[in-house]
Design a protein around this nucleic acid. Structure first.
Lengths: 225, 225, 225, 225
DNA sequence: CATGAATGAGGTTTCATTCAT
DNA sequence: AATGAATGAAACCTCATTCAT
């Protein structure tokens, strides 16, 4: 996972070259340093993608930011797509891991759901770019086979959430008159979409946001006696 | 408002065109028919923008869909921007009008807010494209001075909603421990973002969605007593 | 066959666009003129391909020759590949037709073979570029699925020739101790490869070349009795 | 000839390097081993050139095949050109030597010509790559001054062959009604071009091919009484 | 002897837009 | 109202080559 790679770990559908492709080894020394440079570039790209959008960010923009020529980027990455892929993969991997942990920890559905919400809000700062890209450019990216895995990952997450909501209904914790799937989607969207206006330096930090949302989510905005 | 126009009625801060571009409108013959053709083209463009995104949709895509050549589109529109402008303006105009009406009708904050929510969900179908563009491409479009008016309109809407929430808190209808502005944003985002997955033919129609959401919004997902 | 087209008549494997692609009609008036311009460009490209090779010729080279910008070429053609495709298709179509005609005319194998040889030499001038490209760049072009049809066409031609040689052996006209397939290949290559040095203005024209070759082919270079 | 060299022994008309590049050779330690490594690399490159063509083969392809990075190739070679140069030189040197030997051996023109033909076919396997490159990429390579020597070498070979054919006509061995130069070219091309489809493991080996061709060449494909 | 990073030039292609007809 | 040709800028990407380490 931390080796120097150009193909982002996923198999490429590179039909044209065909022929040999035999010798692409590399395993030597400076993996760590190479990775550092690479990660730096990814970070620069991520910021630009978040700011201007994936499509509107040119590879020259990225290269300029890094102080190199656009062609030089291709020493580190296969393509513009593979940069964004790396950003998204990193996000999804971390999210999946955290979700699994929350589930493993156990607790009643309300506790689990709270934890899941907190996890989501918790990614807002470290994975701001990934979430921004997903919000703004997913519609564009989804057309490429390369990103099919994202839809799959989202499907699994949905199952996880919906499962908890249903369990909550069965155990009498949650109202019966809400649709689990619909509710999940609204929760999900409500959280992620905050990335558009959320400012870490603002009045509320991510945790504060989470608390606020959990409050509203479970009990609504009405005053209950 | 219904004349054949190329400049979309709004003054543009388009430095490039300089001073000459002022008087390009026409007043010729079949205004009505021309307008019809124009609206048809806008509708085609809207669908494409919604499907593929504004940036990813080329003027050729639009022209192809209309069965004409891309250059011919410029008979009807100044630019690609002015097409999307038209789509967005139409949406915002209608929304503002409806909002004003809801306010004028009066009622307690809970009733007004319910109505505002219903209005939002009500635009999901007729203005699907505009909302989709706003969700996916706003980050890109906002960089152009031309679309500054959208941010302004949004600001006004915010004031309107926040006002109602605050009134609800003052009159004891809503909890004191929620942040009005934050709450507004979450409501707003939650509603609009549904455009991404909402399918009119699905289990729930827009009205059903609205009912569901209002339920959760006011009372949360927890079972009370 | 003579309509204005960008896709060269063959289906493209354009997976990415997917979506709509509905309206690419065109059937109107100036087909003839459009075709003229297009054919002119093809001719310019053909000359360059013949002179410098397909790979070494840039679309900018072609555009320069035509006095336009490289991007403008894409108003007429899908891609550089489709230009060369057009050149090759035109050659193969004509050759296949002529071959069929020669076969239909009948005659003993020696007569038919003579005619086939003459046909090949006859294409040397009008289809110089296509033959040159086939000689020099086929190894490169064959890797693209798009050109699979060329290999198929060549296979059919081979069957045709080999059939005649075998018939010649059966009827006692040709020696039994030659391999029909091998012989065909040598004849074929010997003819086409002349395109590298053949000069229409030289001592021998294409017909002279053909006569000379037929002489050697049937009776060898030895003096017989 | 066997020293480690980067400039391939031949003076380059390479204006770019200017005056400095003259003294870059090395005379250090393991000349023999270095030479071995070098030859190995040339062989790898040769295979790729033969398979994909010179232009289409990138230095990265070659480096990949060798399991090193593309930049590392420049430790062994001046440039991509000097690699192919080495391949071609080796072929031409060997061919010239063999041709001289055939001439020195003497015999009547038919015997000499047979031997020359056999020599050509004999290079098909050991110098497959060189011949392939000459067939496919000569048109491209000839534009560089560096390869002028190839045209010169070919000129000498032509004189040699044509001389034998003319001698054969004078001595009554060959028909008078064939053009010596034309005939030479056809023989030459017919032989070399087989490299495109010749498979050592196929029905006929190189010698078999030579026999077949010599048969047809001298006596034609017709049955003579 | 090799790496890893970068250069710089140039490649094909895209696309909003213009304009004479 | 539309065509068809072209522009011009810019996009992504490739690749031979250089060079400090």
């Amino acid at each position: 996972m931390t080796t120097t790679r150009k193909d982002n770990g996923r198999p490429r559908a590179d039909a044209r070259t065909g022929s040999s492709g035999g010798a692409r080894r590399r395993a030597k020394g400076s993996t760590a340093l190479a990775s550092e440079r690479r990660e730096h570039l990814v970070k620069l790209a991520a910021e630009l993608f978040a700011e201007k959008g994936y499509q509107a960010t040119t590879v020259r923009n990225i290269a300029d930011e890094a102080g190199i020529l656009s062609g030089s980027l291709y020493h580190h990455f296969d393509s513009k797509e593979s940069i964004v892929d790396e950003i998204l993969t990193s996000f999804f991997d971390e999210l999946a891991t955290a979700n699994q942990a929350a589930l493993a920890k156990g607790g009643d559905p309300r506790e689990v759901l709270s934890e899941l919400v907190r996890i989501c809000f918790g990614t807002l700062i470290p994975h701001r770019a990934a979430i921004m890209v997903l919000q703004n450019d997913w519609n564009y990216l989804k057309q490429f086979d390369r990103f099919d895995y994202l839809a799959k990952a989202e499907g699994e997450t949905e199952r996880l959430w919906v499962g908890q909501i249903e369990r909550g209904q069965e155990t009498g914790l949650f109202r019966e008159d809400i649709d689990p799937k619909l509710t999940y989607r609204m929760i999900r969207d409500t959280i992620w979409v905050t990335v558009r206006w959320f400012q870490p330096e603002g009045r509320l930090d991510a945790e504060g946001l989470a608390d606020h949302y959990i409050k509203v989510l479970f009990d609504g905005i009405s005053r209950h006696r």
